[in-house]
Amino acid sequence: MEAFEWMAWTGPSATFFAVIFAILVGMTVWDLRSPSVPRRGFLPLETTRGDRLFIGLLGSAYVNLLWIGVTTLSPWYSLAMAVVLLALVMRYG
């Protein structure tokens, strides 16, 4: 891995990508076991699980950015809120 020293890895970013990767693998396996059926939740469009994951993740990114931009409090709070948002979108979206 010498050759990829320039990627300047840090613990948090490595964890972040590992989590994303694990989620994608998990979702793929889940979808292979029981294919997702599109449905309508509180979101104004019909979504599959994958769509809701995307919406949830994009929403989480914006929640974190908003928190960091507006407050000076720890980003851990916004991360927690993002996780809650993701769970809500996945379950009821």
Binding site: T28, P35, G50, D51, F54
Partner: peptide, 9 residues
């Protein structure tokens, strides 16, 4: 021609 897992994404 095909639908496959994750095609739209």
């Amino acid at each position: 021609r095909y639908r496959f897992i994750g095609d739209k994404h």
